[in-house]
Design a protein around this nucleic acid. Structure first.
Length: 473
RNA sequence: CGCGGGGUAGAGCAGUUGGCAGCUCGCCAGGCCCAUAACCUGGAGGUCACCGGUUCAAAUCCGGUCCCCGCAACCA
């Protein structure tokens, strides 16, 4: 029986446009999913959209639209990403899906039955100027930075709370017993420290009168679930929880990919929630760093936003996948610029891989040579597999490019274009073409179309040079 | 003394069982001419933030200083 592998991204908020950071997240998940499939594993790859909450509700109100209809329209922008980035996900969940809503409610019931949900009064700081609730971290000197002359109102509200505080020791134990539960290690360390400092219960509901756009709470008409409480449940509702237990158990626990802004939610809160309903914890959580542009956070006001669609226009789907997968997302925030990406595209893809395929296939065509395609390079394969397993596609790419570079070097030294004897030419070109084929195989999870094209070129009976893979920019 | 990360060639980075300081891009010179003005070779360029300590030997270990960046909870 083949191994089961479940991987999921986080669910982006539906009202925003697809962000480059999410593109990175989902491409990385996609590459790992494709890799596992190529290894023969049975893979389930989940993504989707988070569709509840105040922001979405307000936006729909602004537009005078029915909220569900607003979501139905906006989800199209997210569906588009599948083709644009050539994603291979098996499931696209929407938190407004009927099944998901029922799952979230069942999750609530069980957590409640186990004594981890309770009601309490709590104080909200409210800025009349903004007409918004303010958290302490938003305040400057105890005042709203936008309206420093107004006093904040304190409103008492009764909400449901989740007993997060009870899970401190269990979470610490989880981290202690699973040294790579959160990858990279620095993030595990970060969350460990956070949990060690002590946990406070958090509110998981909102008054329906103020914000009706949420999952209804079982046995309470006055409140709805706070958006992320329901959203997190998607990771298990997507694989059949709670009604299809067999399916659920066959896939869970799974691997999660998230941005560093999600470290707490995924590796602490969500894990505590799973404990609260008696489900196993996640298998592993990969935390990506952020992508910055010109050293700054991308923001509309700075005008330095790079959208995935712009990248695709310029570099193509595989070019975009390559550039993003070349980043080391486990280090500091990664800075990208158009100039830098142009340079890398030209160096690695146009001058590197593309040019190499062109020169080799051209020589094979001119001399009418076909090659034995049964090629192996175990050493390279092992190194690449190891890195992909560690979620280090950037390192895997480095190993592959070392080999490609070597191919260029051998060509220059042996100068097969000067040779007259076809056998001698073949002796030079065949091993090179075979190495390229091995690389193509290994590149399949990273650049699926390009890998297929390269395979087509060199496995043909009559090899033809064909179109260039990556024209220079 | 809140928590965490970082400061290595012009740029981006790698480099912990301590042992002549590396990679990619860019730059300069040469080679090659099959290929996408592509490819190959060589070179210039760094007192590894600073100060002190341990050691035969420190980018790497220890102590201190300066600077930068995240987070500080319900911002899903």
């Amino acid at each position: 029986m083949s191994k089961k592998f479940y991987i999921t991204t986080t669910l982006p908020y539906i009202n925003a446009d697809p962000h480059i950071g999410f593109a990175l997240e989902i491409i990385r998940a996609d590459a790992l999913a494709r890799f596992k499939r190529a290894q023969g594993d049975d893979v389930f790859f989940n993504t989707g959209t988070d569709e509840h909450g105040l922001k979405i509700y307000q936006k729909a109100q602004e537009l005078g639209m029915d909220v569900q209809k607003y979501c139905d329209e906006h989800v199209e922008g997210w569906y588009k990403l599948k083709n644009a980035l050539n994603l291979s996900y098996d499931n696209f969940i929407r938190t407004t899906d009927e099944h998901h809503i029922k799952a979230a409610q069942e999750f609530w019931r069980r957590a409640m039955a186990n004594g981890y949900i309770y009601k309490k009064q709590y104080k909200i700081k409210y800025c009349v100027g903004c007409e918004l609730e303010k958290t302490d971290s938003e305040l400057v000197d105890g005042k709203c930075p936008l309206h420093p002359n107004r006093e904040l109102e304190v409103i008492e509200e009764e909400n449901y709370f989740f007993k997060f505080s009870e899970f401190q020791n269990k979470l610490l134990e989880l981290y202690k017993n699973n040294h790579d539960f959160v990858v990279p290690a620095t993030r595990l360390n970060e969350i460990k420290k956070f949990v060690e400092m002590g946990l406070e219960d958090f509110s998981i509901s909102r008054l329906k009168s103020k914000m009706p756009w949420g999952v209804p709470i079982p046995n309470d008409d006055e409140q709805v679930m706070y958006v992320w409480f329901d959203a997190l449940v998607n990771y298990i509702s997507a694989i059949g929880w709670p009604d299809d237990e067999e399916k659920f158990n066959s896939w869970w626990p799974g691997v999660q990919v998230a941005g560093k802004d999600n470290l707490r939610q995924q590796s602490a809160m969500w894990q505590a929630m799973l404990m609260a309903v008696g489900s196993p914890n996640s298998e592993k959580i990969y935390i990506n760093s952020f992508i910055t542009s010109n050293g700054q956070k991308m923001s509309k006001s700075l005008g330095n936003v790079i959208s995935p669609y712009e990248m695709i226009d310029k570099y193509g789907t595989d070019g975009t996948r390559y550039l993003l997968l070349s980043l080391n997302t486990f280090s500091d925030d990664m800075d990208i610029t158009w100039q830098g990406m142009d340079d890398k595209f030209n160096a690695d893809l146009a001058n590197g891989l593309g040019n190499l395929v062109a020169r080799v296939s051209n020589l094979l065509e001119k001399n009418e040579i076909s090659i034995n395609v049964d090629a192996k390079n175990e050493e390279l394969k092992n190194k690449v597999v190891e890195q992909i397993e560690l979620f280090r596609s950037d390192e895997a790419i480095k190993f592959i490019w070392e080999v490609l570079r070597k191919c260029d070097e051998v060509l220059t030294i042996k100068q097969p274009w000067k040779m007259a004897d076809t056998d001698k030419i073949k002796n030079v070109l065949e091993p090179i073409a075979q190495n390229i084929l091995v690389c193509a195989d290994l590149l399949l999870p990273i650049m699926p179309e390009t890998a297929a094209k390269i395979k087509d070129v060199f496995t043909a009976k009559e090899i033809k040079k064909g179109e260039s893979l990556f024209p220079r920019i």
